[in-house]
């Protein structure tokens, strides 16, 4: 029997869909489901008490606050780094380009120890910052921000980079001949084009920052109510064999993360589809060649 499914060029739709769903279930859904099932052993009131204890609340604030700050810092400076790496030719560009990935490869504990050594009040940088301005970085939430910014830096740079490469220089020139200032060109022409990718990078950096553990515990000082992140609190509970307490915290983190990521995804979907709402009707083939292949002397 011929089904009325649309014809596809590549066979194996059923197989690959089934595989994808099983894969996602095994790796993501079942473990997380187990987590929630475990927490269901508690009554709602007990759950609420554990989830909203003073120490837990402080740890959520620190975890999500520092993550948000780190992701925002990276959104701004990661964009600049990506821009510079794409648009400018300078000696050592490839070297710096490779450097961007380093935070991915480095064991996070190494990063944490290195940053702590640098920013502690006896460290190379810390002694000046603390000595000159009396500003403590290591063993405060600021230290967490520094560590998270370091660890999540590649996300923004690497998601934004290909999009910037795709922007034709001609678009900037067109804006200039129409009388736009540099700032207007950036704000009205370039940024809207990069925005969906920037949001993706931000979301990736943010979610990575929420889960980050290794680099933070060295620099944070882990003072309860001041610089203790939720993942550390979970470990602490586990070490005291408080399995259920750890589960509760994990579920809370899971829910908050999910809600945040979902809203970022919706925003991103909106940003990306705003100008593609209707079906393409005419001549999708004539999108034009990348215009920057055109030589200046042509």
């Amino acid at each position: 029997m011929k089904s009325n499914r649309p014809h596809r060029v590549l066979p194996g739709f059923n197989l690959s869909l089934g595989y994808a769903l099983v894969y996602l279930s095994l790796l993501v859904l079942i473990p997380l489901g187990g987590l929630i099932a475990k927490s269901a052993e508690l009554s709602l009131a007990e759950f609420w008490t554990l989830a909203t204890s003073q120490r837990s609340m402080a740890s959520y604030r620190i975890t999500f606050g520092t993550s948000l700050l780190a992701a925002s810092i990276n959104a701004v400076f990661g964009l600049i780094v990506a821009w510079v790496l794409v648009r400018y030719e300078f000696p050592g560009r490839r070297f710096f380009d490779a450097l961007v990935d380093l935070p991915f490869a480095l064991p996070t504990a190494v990063a944490g120890i290195t940053l702590t050594t640098l920013y502690a009040n006896t460290g190379w940088l810390g002694q000046y910052i603390e000595g000159q301005w009396g500003f403590k970085i290591a063993f405060t939430p600021w230290g967490i921000v520094v560590a998270l910014t370091f660890v999540t830096m590649p996300f923004v740079v690497r998601t934004v980079q290909p999009v910037i490469e795709d922007i034709e220089a001609e678009v900037e020139e067109a804006a200039a001949t129409l009388g736009a200032t540099r700032w207007q060109t950036f704000w009205r022409v370039l940024l809207p084009g990069v925005f969906p990718a920037l949001l993706t990078g931000f979301a990736l950096a943010f979610s990575r920052a929420i889960g980050e553990f290794g680099s933070v515990i060295f620099i944070a000082g882990n003072i309860p109510l001041v610089s203790e992140i939720t993942p550390l609190l979970i470990i602490a509970k586990l070490e005291q064999y408080d399995l259920i307490g750890a589960t509760v915290l994990a579920v809370v983190m899971l829910v908050i993360s999910f809600v945040l990521l979902l809203s970022i995804n919706l925003l991103q979907w909106w940003a990306a589809n705003r100008h593609r709402s209707e079906a393409r009707e005419l001549d999708p083939g004539s999108t034009g060649n990348p215009a920057n292949t055109q030589g200046a002397a042509a």
Partner: peptide, 22 residues
């Protein structure tokens, strides 16, 4: 004089329209 102050209209071979704008 800078491009934006010359008051010239420029049309590019590959249009250079702003993709995210109607």
């Amino acid at each position: 004089v800078e491009a934006r102050e010359r008051n010239v209209g420029f049309v590019f071979q590959h249009y250079a329209l702003f993709r995210h704008m109607s």
